[in-house]
């Protein structure tokens, strides 16, 4: 098993480096791109850029400097916000985004999985239809529609929630709901279909034939197997939450990384865009790695296939 993990970790690091390299060359090589002199750039920025990036040096040297900077977590100065470093922005915004992302994840797990299981156990009964209907809405209605609905109804009409910011702790509710909406519904549907599939399996019949109590069959034999596909979804779920945060943070005016990212896009702040992109990519790859490792720990078949022979 150790060999499997090592291979994956090395692959992850290589991928991150590859992406950083590709991003670098994309930024530098495309005509009309940010680092060519075709775009008018304020003097002070040009000075700092030249200082930082030595734009007159050959590309390879620039690349080397860039990669060196990456390893020391120095992503350079912001292209449009004078005097700010990209890393500063990331450190300022990441905690907020992470907090909201974490809350959203908790909501998804605490509600999605049980609802999916209940739906499966009471298949085709009213509660199943209700849950499935809501879940279908949740996966089809985009997060920004949900977010704006929440603002209009709960802030505008009812005044229960603040319409922006998180100074008021109630301000977390709207963003968390909007952010978790899609994934929560997806997990509910996935858990339900997985549970239904598992309940059809022969080994469930064997457990019953051996006299295991029904509740134990459900809770132990069925659920453990049913959760396996759900665990594989965690990777894409991270991606969904990440990209969802751009929109949600913007709509709710939250001081998170996603909001800064969107701002940097609007302002064409290229260094920030590049830096945050590489950061997101790296974060995502690491999360996937963690998921893969936990997946191997849950499903013994994977463990033994890849591993210690």
């Amino acid at each position: 098993m150790g060999k499997y993990f090592l291979k994956r970790i090395v692959a992850a690091i290589l991928t991150i480096l590859l992406i950083a390299t590709l991003t670098f060359f994309m930024m530098h090589s495309i005509p009309g791109g940010p680092f060519t002199r075709e775009r008018p750039v304020p003097e002070s920025i040009m000075e700092r850029l030249n200082e930082k990036y030595n734009l007159d040096d050959p590309l390879i040297v620039q690349y080397y400097d860039y990669m060196k900077g990456l390893v020391t977590f120095d992503l350079g100065p912001s292209f449009s916000i004078i005097g700010r470093d990209v890393m500063e922005l990331i450190s300022a915004g990441f905690p907020t985004s992470a907090k909201i992302g974490l809350f959203a994840t908790i909501v998804i797990v605490i509600f999605g999985i049980p609802f999916g299981i209940i739906s499966a156990l009471k298949q085709n009964k009213p509660i199943d239809y209700t849950v499935m209907f809501m879940a279908t809405l949740g996966v089809t209605v985009p997060s920004f529609v949900i977010a704006t609905l929440i603002i209009y109804v709960f802030s505008g009409l009812l005044g229960w929630l603040p319409s922006f910011g998180i100074e008021n702790p109630l301000g977390y509710i709207g963003p968390v709901i909007a952010l978790s909406g899609y994934s929560l519904s997806f997990v509910t549907r996935l858990t339900r279909s997985s549970m239904l599939e598992v309940l059809r399996q022969d080994y469930i019949r064997t457990a019953r034939a051996n006299g295991i109590k029904e509740i134990t069959v459900m809770a132990r034999h069925a659920v453990k197997n049913a959760l396996i596909p759900v665990v594989t979804y965690i990777g894409p779920m991270m991606a969904a939450i990440m990209t969802g945060s751009f929109v949600v943070e913007r709509i709710f005016a939250l001081p998170g990384m996603g909001g800064y990212f969107v701002e940097s896009i609007t302002n064409r702040d290229y260094t920030t865009i590049m830096g945050i992109t590489v950061f997101y990519a790296a974060f995502y790859i690491i999360m996937i790695l963690i998921v893969d490792i936990s997946y191997a720990m849950i499903d013994p078949r994977i463990r033994f296939e890849k591993g210690a022979r």
Partner: peptide
Amino acid sequence: NSVPLVLIIIL
């Protein structure tokens, strides 16, 4: 596939 595709589109 190792990065969220939306990021690539944004770039």
